[in-house]
């Protein structure tokens, strides 16, 4: 861990150096302008200090050329900053398609995490180095925020919705994990560590528990729930099926009963499970039961993972 007196903290993700480059540029600008302002007021303060026999100061010319020039210069500088900052931000907004998905549920005051093979953990995240990782996150109660300083990434985690965060670690090691949205009494206890391991170590860690008890992956758990809840009675490939066949649905456009179209993303699947009638698929009757209050956030994430796997979207 780098000392807090270093200008930059540890860089451990692909995006970190890009963010730091902007940060260093901003520091350079700040130092130049602060020294300029401080230097001028001090020099003027000394040079034009009041003398008993000094001449009376002249009235300044009403001349806006200096202001215009300063404004134009600043405009260019700030547009560069805006463009650079926005570019790095947008580049980092959408996860790559091959990212490994980890499910995150925030609740007062812990992070619950689940890996693709089903291994669960709390407040410690194990990930492989050099592999893009996507977190699909939701909250059981209030707003939280998932923050890994060494990765320079942060995203609020909201109840009732999914937010995404992705990163690719570049160095093995342990890095701090924080909740940064104030979430109540033990807010400062809501955090832990990110353990970045070599790919081999990660595989070993993942299977470490599977060897003991049978471990369900989220997809398997989702499939089990799918059967338990009787979903397949309607959602099957049969010609007279009461519900749409879910194979190949995720990530594609769905035509709705009211003629509009939506993209079947996590939000849509969530809504369609909790409240099936809101965005009914064209050609089907509103007969599906409402699952709100019947399944919890973790189960919902597993069901969605299973439906995604039917489209080959999961890994």
């Amino acid at each position: 861990m780098k000392s807090v007196f270093n200008i930059l903290p540890e860089q451990a993700s692909t995006v970190a150096s890009h963010v730091d480059a902007i940060y260093l540029f901003l520091i350079a600008i700040s130092v130049v302008f602060t020294l300029l302002a401080a230097g001028l007021v001090i020099v003027f303060g000394v040079k034009f200090r009041r003398r008993p026999d000094g001449p009376a100061p002249e009235k300044p010319h009403e001349d806006s050329r200096l202001e215009m020039a300063a404004g134009a210069f600043l405009l260019v500088l700030l547009l560069v900053l805006f463009g650079w900052g926005a570019k790095v931000y947008f580049q980092n907004t959408r996860p790559p398609a091959d990212a490994m998905e980890i499910l995150v549920t925030g609740k007062q005051w812990m992070w619950k995490l689940q890996h693709p093979n089903g291994r669960r953990e709390i407040n410690t995240l194990h990930i492989p180095v050099g592999k893009p990782v996507q977190l699909t996150m939701t909250s059981e109660d209030v707003i939280h925020s998932f923050f890994i300083p060494a990765f320079r990434v942060k995203q609020d985690v909201l109840p009732g919705r999914y937010t995404r965060l992705w990163f690719q670690a570049t160095k093995t090691g342990r890095y701090r994990l924080f909740c940064t949205e104030y979430c109540g009494t033990e807010h400062s206890m809501m955090g832990g560590w990110v353990n970045v391991m070599t790919a081999a170590d990660y595989e070993r860690w993942l299977s470490g528990e599977v060897a003991g008890a049978a471990q369900e992956t989220p997809v398997q758990a989702g499939e089990r729930l799918f059967t338990q809840l009787g979903c397949q009675t309607c959602h099957n490939a049969g010609s007279g099926a009461l519900g749409p066949n879910l194979a190949g649905v995720f990530g594609h456009t769905v035509k709705l009963a009211d003629g509009s179209e939506v993209i079947a993303d996590e939000e849509y699947l969530r809504e369609s499970i909790l409240n099936p009638h809101a965005k009914l698929v064209a050609g089907f009757a509103p007969v599906m039961p409402v699952f709100k209050g019947i399944i919890n956030e973790d189960q919902l994430l597993q069901l969605i993972a299973y439906i995604k796997s039917l489209s080959g979207a999961s890994n």
Partner: peptide
């Protein structure tokens, strides 16, 4: 009809 069929009581 469509509105009544699809409206969520929570909303």
């Amino acid at each position: 009809r469509h509105a009544f069929e699809t409206a969520n009581p929570s909303h």
